[in-house]
């Protein structure tokens, strides 16, 4: 760890220029110990007044400092956005969720093992250095939207649910604004070190959920052990039935791309149709058309397909009838 200066902010105006934000510290501290991130100055934002969940219009405004465990347990979230509760509870461990914040969770960095290991070349850590994951151990790497410069995934769960819920990110700092979550995380392209839409000086102040849409909420995460592991693949589904047909469908996917993945064509296909295995297979075909494996992560293609089908069967009531 490099020496750093430390400032505890008392208000949003009290963020020293160039300082790196620390919230729960559960990701940043590990990265600093490895010197994957080596900020010269830190600003602790945990005393700011950003830790409330409150109504906004028909939706919900979630402060950037709301802890993952509190958010998962919040009555309005459990009632109206259960996919979010489930995604949060599928992440990390109880201890980590008690520390982890909403803003920090959105900003968590990839778990590509080569990114963490400074002996290994990595374009994300060191732009232009090369990508040592390509040709190496790629079990947790992307099958969608990757580039020859980086095949890492965004590892988080919460954001996958937020993506299915059409959330927005509220940003404070020099130019306050709101960004749809869809545009918040970036694909790697030839700048894998640019992971989000945040600009220097920006701070996430809240996440905004639109009015609840009802329906069945599922978060299905497949991982290498029963708990406390990152997703191999995950599916967040919000599906409403209209009689025997699918009325609306929102599907987002984790563990497969550099950002929570969503494909409007899949949702268009499903909407208005009677659930059937053939329909779900077609949905999976569409989703996976652009999929590309990199060595040993080949299995993610069939695994995502199967997980999508299982989630759809479950959410549309087909599984229960079977």
């Amino acid at each position: 760890m490099r020496d750093f200066s430390f400032h505890r902010a008392t208000s949003l105006d009290d963020l020293p220029a160039g300082a790196t934000i620390i919230a729960g510290g559960t990701n940043l501290l590990d990265l600093m110990k490895h010197e994957v991130m080596a900020p010269g100055s830190l600003v602790d934002i945990t005393r700011l007044d950003l830790d409330r969940v409150e109504a906004e219009g028909q939706g919900l405004r979630i402060g950037a400092l709301v802890r993952n465990s509190d958010l998962a347990a919040h009555p309005a979230v459990r009632r109206d956005y259960p996919v979010l509760s489930r995604a949060l509870l599928a992440g990390a461990s109880g201890q980590l969720r008690n520390m982890a914040t909403t803003g920090g969770n959105l900003m968590q960095r990839t778990r590509c093992p080569y990114f963490y290991d400074r002996r290994m070349a990595c374009n994300k850590r060191d732009p232009g250095a090369g990508c040592s994951a390509i040709g190496g151990v790629t079990r947790n790497h992307a099958i969608l939207g990757a580039s020859p410069h980086c095949i890492a995934t965004y590892p988080g769960d919460m954001a996958v649910a937020l993506r299915a819920l059409d959330a927005e990110v509220e940003i404070g700092g020099p130019s306050p604004r709101r960004i749809p979550l869809a545009d918040f995380h970036k694909l790697p392209g030839d700048t894998p070190h640019v992971e989000t839409a945040l600009q220097p000086g920006d701070i996430i102040t809240a996440v905004i959920l639109p009015a609840p849409v009802g329906g069945q909420h599922r978060y299905r995460k497949v991982r290498d052990r029963a708990s406390y592991a990152f997703a191999l693949v995950s599916v967040a589904a919000v599906i409403g039935m209209d009689g025997s047909r699918i009325g609306h469908a929102a599907l987002a996917f984790g563990g497969v791309a550099h950002k929570p993945w969503r494909d409007p064509e899949v949702e268009r296909l499903l909407t208005g149709q009677e659930p059937s295995d053939a329909l779900f297979a077609e949905a999976a075909d569409i989703l996976l058309r652009p999929a590309q494996a990199h060595g040993e992560n080949q299995f993610k293609i069939p695994l995502l397909r199967r997980t999508l089908i299982a989630t759809l069967r479950d959410a549309t009531g087909m599984e229960a009838k079977a």
């Binding site: 778990r111 052990r225 708990s227 406390y228 592991a229 990152f230």
Partner: peptide, 11 residues
């Protein structure tokens, strides 16, 4: 211990 998976309680 995040990447080398020893069984956790749920396993």
């Amino acid at each position: 211990l995040a990447e080398y998976h020893i069984p956790c309680h749920a396993d």
